[in-house]
Design a protein around this nucleic acid. Structure first.
Length: 412
DNA sequence: GGCCGTTAA
DNA sequence: TAGTTTAACGGCC
C-alpha cells in the first residue's frame, strides 16, 4: 500500500463517499502485490520520489533566500495574465453521467439497481454508481473489480451504440451552439453567449433545457457546468454530478472565492504527480498557488508557471470553436508475450495494415513513425524515425517499422 | 529530432 | 490467469 499509484482512490470522485477506503485499498493491494504490473508501478514511483527529493533540495534552498527582487517581476506576470481575463462569454461544459454504463442499463432494465460495469475482465471503461460504492471504477481491471464486488456484472463495450447516442446528443448541442466542441463521445463545450441573445431565459434555464432535451431524446442524464471560461465550466460540471448543474457567475469576486479553496487536484491538467509535487511544497489549494507564486516561479518552467497562475486566478480560454488538426495517428494492441522476430514482424504487419487503413479513411499522411514496445515487465520503450517524404501505405509503415524493430532486437 | 513522462477520457 | 487505447504536450538532451 506504500505505492501511491496502486492504493490511490480519488477520494472525492463522485459515488465513493460511503465506502471503506482502507478496505478497498487492501483488496486492491492483495490482488496486485505480486504482479509484474505492480512491480513496474513501484519502480515508477521510486523514480518520482527521487525527482521529488531533488526538487525539495532546490525548494529548501529557495526558502532561505531573499526573493523580494523577484516579487515585482512575478507581479508583472500576474498583471499580464489578468489582462487575459474575459468575462463576456457564457461557457457550458456538458458531461454525460456514467455514459456507457447508463446506456447499457437503459437498454437492459435487468441491469438497473445492480452494481455493473462496462468493459471486460482485463479493463473496465465505466462503472455505474452502485458499483462505485464498492470502489469499482473506470480504468480498473475487471478481475480486480470482481474481488471488490463479487456480484459485479460486467457488460462488454458496444462502441457502435455509444457512437450513435453521441451523435444524438451532439445534434442537441448544435441547436445551442453550432460551433460546440466535442471532447469525447460523452463530453462537450458550448458557448451559449449568442444563443442567450435570442431568448429571455437565464443561462441556468437554458442549460436545464439542454439537459431536459438530452433526457427526453436519449433517456439518459447529463451534468453541466456554466461559467466564464472552459477551465471553470469543466470544474463546475463535476460539482453536482450526477444529473445536476452548477453555475459560477461571471464576476471576479465570485470566481476568486470559488477558486481559492479549490484543491489543486480538481484542476484539469493537474494529475496525481503534479499534485504530489505541489503538496510537497505545502500547496494544496489554488489559493496556496497564489500565495506561493514566487516559489512557483523559481521552481517551475515559465510555461508551467503561466499555467499555474492562470489556473489560480480562474483565467481560462473562452474559445470553443476549433478547427482541429490532428498531429498524430496511432494504433496499439496488448498481446501475450512474443519474442521470435518473425512473430514480432507479423504483429507489426497487422498493425501497419490497420493503421494504413485508418490513414486512408482520413486521407492523411505522416513523416515520423514511432513504435512503442511494452515489455513483459510493463516497461514502455519508444523508438521513432523521421523520413523525408510523407508516407501512408501499409508497406511504407511496415518497412520503416521493421527497421526500428530490428534495431531493438532482442527485446526482453 | 528523438525519447520519456504526465494527463485525460 | 489477468492491468487498455488514443492523443497531445512539455522537458530534456
Amino acid at each position: 500500500i506504500r505505492n501511491s499509484r496502486i492504493g490511490e482512490l480519488a477520494s472525492n470522485k463522485a459515488g465513493l463517499q460511503g465506502i471503506d477506503k482502507e478496505k478497498v485499498k487492501q483488496i486492491i493491494y492483495e490482488a496486485s502485490k505480486n504482479s509484474a504490473f505492480y512491480l513496474n508501478e513501484e519502480k515508477k514511483d521510486e523514480a518520482l520520489s527521487i525527482k521529488l527529493k531533488q526538487m525539495m533540495i532546490k525548494y529548501e534552498s529557495l526558502k532561505k533566500q531573499n526573493l523580494s527582487a523577484i516579487n515585482s517581476k512575478v507581479d508583472n506576470l500576474i498583471q499580464v495574465a489578468e489582462r487575459e481575463r474575459d468575462l463576456s462569454h457564457i461557457i457550458v461544459h456538458i458531461d454525460m453521467d456514467a455514459f456507457y454504463a447508463s446506456i447499457e442499463e437503459r437498454d437492459n432494465p435487468s441491469l438497473r439497481n445492480k452494481p455493473m460495469a462496462v468493459g471486460d475482465n482485463s479493463m473496465l471503461t465505466t462503472s455505474n454508481y452502485e458499483a462505485r460504492n464498492y470502489g469499482v471504477r473506470s480504468a480498473m481491471p475487471g478481475f480486480i473489480a470482481k474481488k471488490l464486488c463479487p456480484e459485479l456484472i460486467i457488460v462488454p463495450c458496444n462502441f457502435d451504440k455509444y457512437r450513435a447516442v453521441s451523435k444524438q446528443i451532439r445534434e442537441i448541442f448544435s441547436r445551442y451552439d453550432p460551433d460546440y466542441t466535442p471532447m469525447s463521445l460523452d463530453e462537450a463545450y458550448l458557448d451559449i453567449t449568442k444563443y442567450l441573445e435570442t431568448t429571455d431565459k437565464s443561462p441556468d434555464n437554458v442549460v436545464e433545457q439542454i439537459r431536459r432535451e438530452i433526457h427526453e431524446e436519449t433517456k439518459l442524464t447529463a451534468s453541466a457546468g456554466i461559467a466564464a471560461n472552459k477551465l471553470l465550466a469543466k470544474i463546475c460540471s463535476d460539482l453536482n454530478k450526477p444529473n445536476g448543474q452548477y453555475r459560477l457567475q461571471n464576476n471576479v469576486d465570485d470566481i476568486m472565492n470559488f477558486v481559492r479553496p479549490l484543491s489543486v487536484r480538481k484542476i484539469p491538467g493537474i494529475g496525481r504527480v503534479t499534485e504530489r509535487i505541489l503538496n510537497e511544497m505545502d500547496i494544496k489549494t489554488c489559493g496556496a498557488i497564489l500565495d506561493n507564486r514566487v516559489y512557483i516561479h523559481q521552481m517551475f518552467s515559465s510555461s508551467s508557471f503561466n499555467f499555474f497562475i492562470r489556473v489560480a486566478l480562474g483565467i481560462g480560454s473562452t474559445i470553443v470553436k476549433t478547427d482541429h488538426k490532428r498531429k498524430s495517428k496511432s494504433i496499439s494492441r496488448t498481446f501475450s508475450s512474443l519474442s521470435r522476430p518473425d512473430d514480432l514482424y507479423e504483429k507489426l504487419r497487422e498493425l501497419a495494415d490497420h493503421l494504413a487503413a485508418d490513414l486512408l479513411k482520413e486521407r492523411i499522411q505522416g513523416k515520423t513513425i514511432a513504435i512503442t514496445f511494452k515489455l513483459v515487465n510493463f516497461k514502455l520503450i519508444t523508438r521513432e524515425r523521421s523520413v523525408k517524404k510523407y508516407i501512408h501505405t501499409a508497406d511504407d509503415i511496415y518497412n520503416i517499422g521493421k527497421q526500428i524493430l530490428t534495431d531493438e532486437l532482442p527485446l526482453n
